[in-house]
Design a protein around this nucleic acid. Structure first.
Lengths: 201, 201
DNA sequence: AAAATAAGTAAACATTTATTTACTAATAAA
DNA sequence: TTTATTAGTAAATAAATGTTTACTTATTTT
């Protein structure tokens, strides 16, 4: 039996992310992808059931899965609050700096109903993404270190500005200088932390 | 000369937003749109040059333009910082509550290269969106009320969590109870304000 | 070395797509 | 009322789409 060529599967995933980043998800076609990856369209159907299957696997495994892994690197739910948030921010920033094309599909996760639905279903069937971060938030809320927000609000306050700053970071090609310096990135992180911390009185 | 039927143009815009919200931008076709709006495909081409033109006008005028107008309602660059941010947040929340379908296309603005590019170009050719908010930020930064962040960072800290909370608000159909209550919305706003305020020492 | 089997290719398939053609309808100006 | 002109329709068109068919190739097992 002829074995699957892993390089071809990697080429499909890599080029798919690149084409989506450059041209948009709405302009990705199976033929363009096959051509870019230097394979026959049929080969894609050996690895993936159909286009939706490809997009969902790409999004859930290649993008969110790898993103989660990178964010949780050296992170522990028992960390001090400020240290933990800085760890998450730095990991996230580093990951997307090294995986720029993944960021594009990540963004589609908030707009495309297909990806959105797939993400939710995956969270139900195989356990929540970012569980240690949730435990971290719950622990600090219980200890009174931070305001006792529901996890969705915690996520909005911590992750939304972070991803927006990374998006700004990538836009820097249009501008004479990079706005998002390391120093400003750290100050932004501190601002988010300061807002969530519980004021002792 | 037969005059244009404004109702038909409105139907096109309204149903386009609805179809995008329900099925995704990547699944919107001119024929589906024509059918949904109960008109001939040709009629769309009387009002818009082509599909890209329709999407760009829909995004820039119908979504961002109307959004800006709603956000600036009763807002002034001379407002007290906390009052101004609360005003923006409340206006934004109210607008999207009443224009749910616009929110879907808004989200695509961050992922789709076509819309992204159109937004930037429009900002250059016809003046920046949200100028009063920028003036507001600059004024408070100069006065030392808030940290002296570049406007991009200010935007990330103030708007990103806001839009993420609104997104959470819309997800409530899947859940037994609405997480984003008015009270939590106000507290989130306060947390964002607290983070950006300059600590006097 | 031969057989078995799945991977892979090139080309084709039936649909669907954005857009246009050929026509009809409505209205303002003459 | 007639004419000119644009709005609008139904149907067609050419190109592009996701997917499959018919075939070839590479590799493992016997």
């Amino acid at each position: 039996m002829r074995p699957k060529n892993i390089e071809k599967e990697e080429a499909i995933r890599k080029l798919a992310l690149q084409l989506i980043a450059e041209d948009g998800l709405e302009n990705l076609t199976m033929q363009k992808l096959a051509k870019a990856a230097n394979i026959s369209p049929r080969t894609i159907y050996i690895k993936y059931e159909n286009k939706e299957d490809l997009l969902i696997k790409l999004f859930v495994d290649e993008v969110i899965g790898a993103f989660e892994k990178a964010v949780l690197e050296n992170f522990s739910a028992t960390m001090d609050f400020a240290v933990g948030i800085h760890c998450i921010w730095q990991n996230c920033f580093t990951y997307f700096k090294n995986n720029r094309h993944a960021f594009a599909l990540m963004q589609y996760g908030k707009s495309s109903p297909l990806l959105n639905k797939a993400y939710k279903e995956r969270n139900i069937t195989e356990g929540q993404f970012f569980t240690p971060v949730h435990q971290f938030a719950e622990r600090h809320a219980a200890a009174g270190t931070i305001k006792n927000f529901p996890i969705q609000i915690f996520r909005a306050l911590v992750f939304a500005p972070l991803l927006d700053l990374i998006n700004e970071y990538f836009e820097h090609t249009d501008r004479p200088v990079q706005v998002i310096t390391d120093e400003l990135f750290q100050s932004s992180c501190d601002a988010v932390i300061a807002g969530i911390l519980q004021n002792k009185h």
